[in-house]
Amino acid sequence: MTTVTPISQAHALELLQGMVRIRRFEEKCAELYSAMKIRGFLHLYIGEEAIAVGVMQALRPEDSVAATYREHGHALARGLSMGSVMAEMYGKLEGCCRGRGGSMHLFDAATRFFGGSAIVAGGIPLSVGLALADKMQERANVNACFFGEGAAAEGEFHESINLATLWKLPVLFLCENNRYAMGTALERSESETDIHLKAQSYGLKSEVVDGMDVIAVEQAAQRACDAIRNGEGPYFLEFTTYRFRPHSMFDPELYREKAEVQAWKEKDPIKLFSQKLLADGLISDTDISRIEAKVQDEITAAVEYAEAGQWEAVEDLQRYVYSERGHHE
């Protein structure tokens, strides 16, 4: 039987599992938020999973990733353990940042994951600098930077694209256009709503990609990474997507119609992808059940890990403001 899905069964399962893993993890987070186990702001990525999962396929361990405050999905897809992310959200010592960062500030040196920035567009210059370091040290790495369409209203978005293009730096700009900057619709904040066009005006390669289609995302990311590694300078990808959940747990969603949310839910990246794989005969319902069970086990273990974690000693409050002498070169 011929398939229209241009990937192997193993890879299809990997992509599906990657998305299901983020979806179920975040559903659990919402539940734990209501149970007051997780506090602060909690921004869910549900609906946008295809982007993080698709893009990460094209990245290598030596590449860098910078993301926003809606970064649980990116952290998991990049390879942070679910336990360390969950423990971080609990505020426990076993968290990836010892509980100092929380949901919005996940960092991980081992996977070159540079946050977790909660200043819109504030993480973009970091990727430009990481790319500058790569270029000056002649490393063919990609520096991936995720941000929302709201970032296009910030000066740092424009300054960063300009400088990266001017200096031909290996930055992969990844705009997740979910149409709302918190509660402000794109049309209500931008005179020109075509974000990829704004980027293009700086003279770099720029594409719009269906962010609800994990394969389209992966292929676009691969194209972009190839070009960047080839020394062609930065690349801009705009993903059209939608967040199914409110902006944060405090958001009553007064700014959008239920019908609109419903219409986008029809494009659910997990649902569409599984349906396609089933229709193509690439996977079976049993495969899906197996993935769900496996993810459930991982979540259960992550919650147990976080629950069993310790609170950092208050005596350590002053640590990590400045380097502890002898710890760094």
Binding site: I124, P125, L126, G129, A131, A133, M136, L163
Partner: peptide, 28 residues
């Protein structure tokens, strides 16, 4: 020009790029 870099009038990105470059192993 590689080691004495004239930047655009973009304080935020060139300072941010300094932070990123420092994270990337340089001493800006």
């Amino acid at each position: 020009p590689e080691r004495v870099r004239d930047t655009p009038l973009s304080e935020s990105v060139f300072v941010g790029a300094g932070i990123g470059a420092a994270l990337g192993g340089m001493r800006p």
